[in-house]
Each structure stands twice: as structure tokens, then as C-alpha cells.
Write a protein that binds this DNA or RNA. Structure first.
Length: 281
DNA sequence: GAGGAAGCAGGAAGTTTTCC
DNA sequence: GGAAAACTTCCTGCTTCCTC
């Protein structure tokens, strides 16, 4: 039985002419994903309302903005509207904080077993954690007070958190939850730049030299590390929380081989000089 | 613009853990 | 020890983005 069918794409809502109160036809796309196919117009109630994007986040009250897509053609960048709306509150938003921590502890990220969605919700709601760094400050007495936890599970969770203190650079980058950066992109960043400091400091134009990293992803990575809150969390993780990143070292051969001086000058829009250069007036 | 890849997401089934 | 709840993992199509 299909219990839910979500529709986040406002362009798709507009295309379907969907209104609140409508009856819709859904199908299972393949075996799994429920898809809204069509609105049953004849069943539309008189009090049907238009779907409106909220101006503020229902959880934290922060402004909601539409994502923007950056495209480059013939050296010119153009900005168009994306399909996704986002709360700008980031980790100050409780809902985003919970999802960020759920992602951080997931198996493919920091692999902290015993921390599921429900437990993380409890920890955030009880204000025991306000960022991934707070996980490493949790105490036995705090965990055992949680619903569903007893002695064995509390000790197990503390051990799992402690065991996660030496992640590879790729896992750590993936765990940070940078938009559009999944496992593969995190591996590329780790393999090519081989140090978190290089990833943090890389300009978007430089990041686009990496395989499968375009402008859109490069700007997401750059703005993530520009954000003061994100920087503070990372500093706390690597400082007081005692995380030690593995696999850091020299600049990867993959990046060095793909980077030429001419390429960098072009990507960074540095005006050319010399006999053939355009004259300024 | 086309083709391909990565990321994302809902449901189901299996596993683990707690509680009574 | 059994029931119930929570958690994990897998499956696979859609959307978005990247490269050519």
C-alpha cells in the first residue's frame, strides 16, 4: 500500500495544475517510488486552494528561497531558477539540524551505529545536541535517560561514537552534508586535494577542474566552507572533539595532471598579457 | 541537446533491542 | 521468552547536474 506520495517540485505542481484538496491519480514508478500522474479535475472541491510556497520556514521561521542554477556558456555565466526551495536557516533550523545529524552518523558517512532518526530527534528536542560536534560530548547519564535506551545500548552507542574519531577524509567530507556532494564527489575531493584545508580554501573555478565537478557543485562546496557556522562546527570536530582525519597528504596526481597554467588563467578570468593582448582604453 | 552518472527518496523486509 | 518498536539495508525510478 502506498501511504505517501510527495511532490516537491513546484514546476511539476504548476504543470499538473495541482490544488490543495484535489484528488490525484498516482502510480508506482517501477516498483518503488509513488508518482503523482494526474489531477482528477471533476473531483476538485469548491474550496480547493492554490498551492503556495511558504515565505518562511514552518519550523524555524527563516526566509525560504529558491535555488539558483549557474550555467556557463562561451565564457559567460547565466543564472536561472532551480526546482528546489530551501530554508536559509541551515543548521539554525531544527529540522535541518536533525537531518544533518542523521546524515552525519549514517553508515556511509561516519558509521555511528545505534543512532537512528528517532534517537536523534530526541537528542535535538532535548537540546542535548546542537551540532554533530555535540555528539562527542554526550555522557552516559544523558543517553540512558533517553526513551528506548538501557545500559547495554548506552555503552554501545558511546563506543560507536568514540570509534568514529578517525574517519578517512572522504568519509568526513561526505558526512558534512554539503549539498550535491555525495559519496563519489567526496572521494574525488579527497583523492585530488588530499587535505581538508585545500578543500576549504579552493575557489569554485579551481574545483571545476576536478572530474564530475561543475560550477553548480563547486559553488555549493565553496559557500559551505564560507559559512561561519559550518566552519565553527568543523573546527570543534577537529579540535575539542579530537577527530583525526586519515588519508591526508600531498596534492593528488589526478588534480595536478588536469591543471595547466593556461587553464587556471582562463577559469579565473585573468586578462591575458603580452603581444596578442587586447589594449585597454 | 543528448547521454550518462550521482544523489535522493519511499516502502518492505530483516535484524536488533527494550520492555513486560 | 515473546511482543512491540526502532533501526538498518536494499531496491530502483526520478531529478538534477556534468561532460561532450
Amino acid at each position: 500500500m502506498v501511504a505517501n506520495a510527495t511532490l516537491h517540485n513546484m514546476d511539476e505542481v504548476a504543470r499538473l495544475g495541482l490544488m490543495i484538496g484535489d484528488t490525484v491519480i498516482i502510480r508506482r514508478a517501477g516498483d518503488v517510488i509513488p508518482q503523482v500522474v494526474q489531477v482528477v479535475a471533476e473531483r476538485r472541491p469548491e474550496n480547493a486552494r492554490a498551492v503556495q510556497v511558504p515565505q518562511t520556514c514552518p519550523v524555524c521561521g527563516s526566509h525560504v528561497e529558491r535555488t539558483q542554477l549557474i550555467k556557463r556558456s562561451k565564457g559567460k555565466e547565466t543564472v536561472t531558477e532551480g526546482a528546489v526551495y530551501r530554508c536559509v536557516g541551515r543548521l539554525a533550523c531544527g529540522a535541518q539540524l536533525k537531518q544533518a545529524i542523521i546524515h552525519y552518523v549514517s553508515r556511509r558517512a561516519m558509521d555511528i551505529e545505534g543512532l537512528g532518526d528517532k534517537t536523534i530527534e530526541q537528542l535535538v528536542d532535548e537540546k542535548l545536541i546542537g551540532s554533530p560536534a555535540d555528539l562527542y560530548k554526550l555522557k552516559y547519564e544523558q543517553i540512558i535517560d533517553l526513551e528506548g535506551f538501557a545500559e547495554i545500548s548506552s555503552n554501545k552507542l558511546l563506543k560507536a561514537i568514540a570509534d568514529s574519531r578517525q574517519p578517512t577524509l572522504a568519509r568526513f567530507i561526505y558526512a558534512l552534508g554539503i549539498p550535491d556532494v555525495g559519496e563519489e564527489t567526496a572521494k574525488v575531493l579527497a583523492r585530488s586535494l588530499a587535505s581538508l584545508d585545500r578543500v576549504k580554501q579552493a575557489l569554485p573555478e579551481v574545483l571545476t577542474y576536478l572530474p564530475d565537478v561543475g560550477l553548480e557543485v563547486a559553488y555549493e562546496i565553496h559557500s559551505f566552507f564560507e559559512d561561519e557556522h559550518n566552519r565553527n562546527v568543523i573546527d570543534a570536530l577537529l579540535g575539542e572533539c579530537g577527530l583525526q582525519l586519515q588519508d591526508q597528504g600531498e596534492l593528488g596526481a589526478e588534480f595536478a595532471a588536469s591543471t595547466t597554467l593556461e587553464g587556471l588563467i582562463d577559469k579565473l578570468h585573468i586578462p591575458s598579457v603580452g603581444p596578442g593582448a587586447a589594449q585597454t582604453g
